[in-house]
Amino acid sequence: MAAVNINTEEFKRMISGDKPVLVDFWAPWCGYCRRLAPAYDALADELGGELAFAKINVDDDSAVADELGVEVIPTLIMYKNGRAVDSVVNPGSKGAMERFIRAALAK
């Protein structure tokens, strides 16, 4: 399943569901964010059965990023049962992202 672009409302609905959700906070002008996208999308295809992959453009939805205290992008936050369980800033490889996801899911 591909990663989906969501807004604040969809974010609130999505994280309160049963399935864990990984959210990528990004912006189009952020080179590091764009660099993450191909591997993030590939992981969404590979692991989409276990968790949902979402993206929030912080330029479009700055309110939710501010509310969550996301100051640096790209930041990935893992949600389980409506609660943030772990986060990582600018992971350096697809493998690093996958290791973060595995560890966060196990929490």
Partner: peptide
């Protein structure tokens, strides 16, 4: 490739 195509170039505006 560990992350995405482009290497250093990918971060050049």
């Amino acid at each position: 490739e560990k992350l995405s195509a482009g290497g250093q170039m990918a971060l050049t505006e």
